[in-house]
Amino acid sequence: MKQTQAQAAPGSADGAVRPVDSNANPNELRVPAIEIQQGKRRIYTFAVDGTQVHEFAAVSRIRRDHEQLHGYQRPEALAHVRAIRRYLESADAILPNALVLAFDPTVRFIPREPTAPGAFATLGELVIPIDLSLPPHQRSAWMVDGQQRAAALRDADLDSFPVAAVGFISDAVAEQRTQFILVNSTKPLPKGLIHELLPDTTGPLPPTLARRRLPAEVMVRLNTTGPFAGRIKSPTAPDGYIQDTSVMKMIEHSLHDGALYHYRDTDGTGDIKRIIVHLNAFWSAVRDTWPEDWELPPRRSRLTHGVGIAALGYVMDALTDGITATELSPHLLRERLECLLPHTAWSSGHWNLRDEQCSWNGLQNTTNDISRLARHLQRTLPTTR
């Protein structure tokens, strides 16, 4: 049995219900809240210290007991939780996404004044029972959305961190599952939109996004000048035919383990100008070596396909590693790439790979095929610079 609900304070002479003193009962949490009418249902928006959420809210883990389904939440994604935690412990962290909680009927709302006719919202106080002696499945709330954020807040080295929350009262697990599916079935942001937005963001980002900020900025610049200009498909260049993810993969690899590495700084920034000069020098030589294949979309040319962009990225690293942007010779790059002409089949013919022969479009944008093509091209490169 859960603790007995505390009684509301008596109404005042004007008929308005007044909240009780927040310190009256240590076994309940009282927070200012807004009650919003949605049809016959009500939801509650409020702020709460994120480090306290697990004192009254539990996570309903999905499991089966024979044929009976229990719960609905997936296990904690530990790497994701750690990434959020690192971000929360950084300076100026912000968590604008609201946690979504399903309350049981022991949670109650005390209005500060009667709801005005026609109004959708009522100001008041949400009263949430807290009893740490209860097992998790008997606590006052279930986490419908935000379990990874809540776990990060629980584990973070923080005295407090206020977060927004939205709650609704329901003790029916089936309804909670429905809300869980609806909240988590929204379409994520397209990668192309994220890549285009990253260069113009400020402030701290989760590590996975922070690492992509420099390559994203490089890619955006590439799409404005040089051989890639207007050819990289993005929200602002919808007519581009080279996938942005292919170009990002090529840039990221070279920045972290290739010819572009020495342009990076330890703080994740880099010498954008010299990176662009370096990339444009090599890819201009690619365009000039295979001009017809460069103008074809990926379905008609493996040169502009993900497998070709990635494999030639490895070729760029092999040919230009240790050479600065100002030292690159367009003539010499073109001369060395021309050695590959008899061994390529970007838009017709066959690839004579060491392990097998395959048609020109038989190579796909997979790790295995990228490695096979990269090795094939690198074997035919000149051994001297």
Rank of each mutant, 00 (worst) to 15 (best):
F103M: 05
E89P: 02
A102T: 04
F120I: 10
P105S: 15
G118Q: 10
L126F: 01
L95A: 15
R108V: 05
P111K: 10
I128Y: 00
P114A: 15
Y87V: 02
A121T: 12
V107F: 04
L126Q: 03
A93H: 03
S133A: 11
I128E: 01
L126A: 02
L101S: 00
R112S: 08
V100C: 10
L132F: 01
L99H: 02
R112F: 04
Y87M: 11
E113D: 12
P111W: 12
Y87N: 10
I128S: 00
E113H: 13
L101Y: 00
I128G: 01
R108E: 05
I110A: 03
D104A: 12
A93K: 05
V127Y: 03
A91T: 12
P117N: 14
A93L: 05
A116E: 11
L123E: 12
A98S: 15
E113G: 09
D92S: 11
D104C: 15
S133V: 02
R112Y: 08
A119L: 11
S133M: 05
A121C: 13
V100P: 03
I94M: 07
Y87C: 07
L123V: 13
G124V: 01
F109C: 07
D131E: 06
E125P: 04
A98K: 05
L88W: 00
I110G: 00
A98W: 08
P129A: 02
V127N: 00
L123D: 12
F103A: 07
T115R: 06
P111C: 13
P129F: 00
R112W: 11
L132G: 02
P117E: 15
A116T: 04
T122A: 14
L99C: 06
R112P: 01
E125V: 01
A116G: 09
A119C: 10
E113Q: 14
P129W: 00
S90D: 09
I110L: 08
E125T: 07
P117V: 04
R112H: 09
A116M: 11
D92P: 07
F109W: 13
P114D: 14
P117K: 14
E89L: 01
V127M: 05
D92L: 10
Y87D: 10
P105K: 14
I94F: 10
L99E: 01
V107C: 06
P111A: 12
N97G: 10
V107H: 06
D92R: 08
E113L: 11
V100Q: 07
T115I: 00
N97Q: 10
E113M: 13
I128K: 05
A116Y: 13
A93Q: 02
P114N: 13
F103D: 05
I128D: 00
P111M: 11
E125Q: 08
D92A: 11
A98Q: 08
V100E: 02
P96Q: 15
P105H: 11
A119F: 15
Y87W: 12
A102C: 12
D104S: 14
D92T: 09
D131V: 04
E89Q: 06
P114T: 05
